Simulated scan of single mutants.
Amino acid sequence: MNDPVIELRGATKRFPSGTGQAHTAVRELTMQVSAGEFVAVVGPTGCGKSTTLSLVSGLEPASEGEVYVRGERVRSIPRGVGYMFQNDAILPWRSVLDNVAAGPRYRGASRSAARATAATWVERVGLAGFAKYYPHQLSGGMRKRVALAQTLVNEPEIMLMDEPFSALDVQTRSLMQDELLRLWAGTGAAVVFVTHDLEEAIALADRVVVMTASPATVKDVFAVPLSRPRNVEDVRLTAEFLEIYREVWESLRVEVARAREEASRVG
């Protein structure tokens, strides 16, 4: 592995709980991601996958341990980080074009320059004919394309993606997965992609990180030796994909069962 652009060293995060005691979301988390690498993170529901992204983005400080981006310890939001959330952050009073132009504008670009850059990305995500539309006029898949353009317009070196396609129907989700791979290819950006969908993780990633049941830590890391470029529907039908799936699921299913048992016990 090349020098990592993201590195977590024994990172632990605790949050206050309603009982007055701290809740540990992740514990002793150690992970590295290199430039141009696509890493998917899977684990049981509520184990702390999203917290991992919050630590890398600087939205939450580690309670213990250290988090580094480009070799510098994370103490605030690092430059060059794009974050795509499960719920899109599209502003309802702005058109598609102006939503995408917002990032460059916040970074000091003139209105005309920001809109010119945004227009390029609106076209790249297949929405050139909808640049003047408003969010309420768009389908779910189109809104996700806007959110993807919002993330990529700033040319991030690191892309953090928190179940960005989970609310989409199966067909639209597959299309967006292919769109993401197409737009990411050649950018050199490091991607950390959190998902509950193991098929999605394997179809997209270079490596799949399996997290334990809460409080989460890294249990296993699996390489995905599937060639690129990939078509997600085609790759899911290959023998290589099924072999990797069985191997990763064997590790993940144990943690899913543990999480269910713990939920039943607490309930």
Rank of each mutant, 00 (worst) to 15 (best):
T120D: 11
W121V: 00
R124H: 05
R124A: 15
V125R: 04
L127D: 00
L127K: 00
K132A: 15
Y133S: 15
Y134H: 08
Y134F: 12
P135I: 02
P135Y: 02
H136V: 04
H136L: 03
Q137N: 08
L138P: 08
M142V: 00
R143D: 00
R143F: 00
K144W: 15
V146D: 14
V146Y: 14
L148F: 06
A149R: 08
Q150E: 15
T151Y: 11
N154M: 12
E155G: 04
E155D: 15
E157T: 07
E157F: 04
M159H: 00
M161I: 02
M161P: 06
F165C: 03
A167W: 10
L168W: 01
D169H: 06
R173W: 05
S174T: 05
S174R: 15
M176D: 00
M176C: 03
Q177C: 02
L180W: 04
L181W: 06
L181I: 05
L183C: 09
L183G: 09
G186C: 13
G188W: 10
A189Y: 02
A189S: 15
A190G: 14
V191T: 14
V191L: 11
F193A: 12
F193R: 10
V194N: 07
T195N: 12
T195F: 14
T195R: 13
T195M: 13
L198A: 13
L198Q: 04
L198S: 05
E199K: 10
E199I: 08
E200M: 13
A201T: 09
A201N: 11
A203Q: 06
A205W: 11
R207G: 07
V208L: 13
V209R: 15
V210L: 04
V210P: 07
T212L: 06
A213R: 12
A213C: 13
A213E: 08
P215W: 02
P215Y: 02
P215D: 07
P215A: 03
V218A: 10
K219Y: 14
K219I: 00
D220V: 04
D220H: 05
V224T: 14
P225Q: 09
P225H: 07
P225A: 12
L226D: 13
S227I: 06
R228G: 07
R228Y: 11
P229K: 09
P229R: 02
R230Y: 06
N231Y: 02
E233H: 11
E233A: 12
E233Y: 01
